[in-house]
Amino acid sequence: NRLYLVCPMNISPHVNLHKTGHEVWEEFSHCFTPAVREVVEFAKKIPGFRDLSQHDQVSLLKAGTFEVLVVRFASLFNVKDRTVTFLGGNKYSVETLKAMGSGYLLNSMFDFSEKLMNLGLSEEEMSLFTAVVLVSADRSGLENVNSVEALQETLIRALRSLITRNHPNESAIFTKLLLKLPDLRSLNNVHSEQLLAFKVH
């Protein structure tokens, strides 16, 4: 009945048995906080994001931070040797993590990362796609949907233009990218459930 944290946002999946549940959570929180701050810094650089109301900026970040992190950290999932690199720098095989209790979520994140990396996007394309992931007008709790929608459309047009210019013979890439959005939503939902269950535990 040992507890493991199979999220790569941890230094390692091993949990110190002498720590209380609260201490374990605090340590985990300490690990993912810098990554969340980086997402906020990224959002601030999206042209037009800071023109949205503060309420909507927070709502978009609350809803989309995990999805942005999945895209940004897709490279932690090494599809070839089936390993995951944790923040501490150590790699763990899928089999090892499976024995520690990982399941559907980690497998799904592997599949997602593999398909995303296979598209061979440049850093600029990946950044613009990440902005599209974050600025979604159908997130709950938005007070000015029209403004978010306008920014979302601008970003999607820019992404399509960039992809079309960089990959003139691969018109399906843009469509494939847009199809990644519902995949990310599903991962987000499963992740939230598991994380909340862990925190309660």
Partner: peptide, 27 residues
């Protein structure tokens, strides 16, 4: 748990990170 981000403490981190920027803008 209708608001996972708040329950997980994400909202607090996000607000603090954004607020620094908003204060800069006011300056």
């Amino acid at each position: 748990f209708s608001d996972p981000a708040s329950n997980l403490g994400l909202e607090d981190i996000i607000r603090k990170a954004l607020m620094g920027n908003l204060e800069e803008r006011q300056d």
